[in-house]
Amino acid sequence: MILKNINLKAVLFDMDGVLFDSMPYHANAWHKVMKAHGLNLSREEVYLHEGRTGAGTINMVCQRQLGREATPEEVKNIYKEKSKEFNTYPQADRMPGAWELLQKVKAAGLLPMVVTGSGQTSLLNRLEENFPGMFRRELMVTAFDVKHGKPHPEPYLMALQKAGLKPEEAIVIENAPLGVESAVAAGIFTIAVNTGPLDCQVLLDAGASALFPSVQALCDGWEELINKLA
């Protein structure tokens, strides 16, 4: 792995599956609520569509199964039920290695940022509690900020704009194929961490330039990665 023409100033983190070990809860909640509405979305497929906004996920399933987009009322009700179901589960733990990795990012003088397709306020509100002093709220990009969710490049382009960065001044850490596609489309060097059930090749096919089997493995290899930027 050779990193070229990168003047690193910031590290852009996805949230679910990178900072929080929350994806199993999301997968269960989406599957259960969709099934209650007569819609089919398996737990494993949730990982393939991770990064879409809630509305995007609901519309995708409705278009596939019903041949139409969901109505605004359907989107509102289904996502409300999904959020309610998600919040019945225990609080998601920090992903192993995430806190230590963020400390290394900060120690290197780099700006950590969150770029997530999630609108799950219970998790967004816990970022400061679980990662104190790491993220500036005004620089976060969430489902509430974007018109187009991942895999569209808008979330990562918006993050660059908010921080006044060029694509070559950042790297992205993602665990989802749609997130990888989004970051690559924004022109940013993208590292994948495979923290779910997907085959590693799915993340590489999405365009990841580097792949680690876990956030902890990325943390352990961080110094070597940074040295390749020097």
Rank of each mutant, 00 (worst) to 15 (best):
L3G: 03
M15G: 00
V18R: 01
D21F: 06
D21P: 12
S22N: 06
W30V: 08
K32M: 07
K32L: 13
E44Q: 12
E45D: 15
H49Q: 11
T53K: 12
G54E: 03
G56Q: 11
N59S: 06
V61A: 04
R64M: 09
L66M: 15
G67L: 03
G67Y: 05
G67N: 04
E69T: 14
A70V: 13
P72G: 00
E73G: 01
E73F: 00
V75P: 00
V75D: 03
K76G: 03
I78T: 01
P90A: 10
R94Y: 09
M95G: 08
M95A: 09
P96Y: 13
E100R: 07
K106A: 11
K106E: 14
L111S: 06
V115E: 10
G117T: 02
S122V: 14
S122G: 07
S122R: 14
L123H: 12
E129Y: 01
F131V: 09
R137P: 01
R137H: 07
E138P: 00
T142C: 09
D145N: 15
K147N: 07
H148K: 15
P151A: 14
P153Y: 15
E154H: 05
E154P: 00
P155D: 07
Y156L: 04
Y156Q: 09
A159L: 02
A163C: 06
K166G: 01
E169R: 08
E169S: 11
I171N: 02
L178T: 12
G179F: 09
V180M: 00
E181C: 05
A185N: 10
A186T: 01
F189W: 03
I191Q: 00
L198Q: 13
L204A: 08
L204P: 06
A210F: 08
D220I: 09
W222K: 06
E223N: 14
E224Q: 10
N227H: 14
K228H: 10
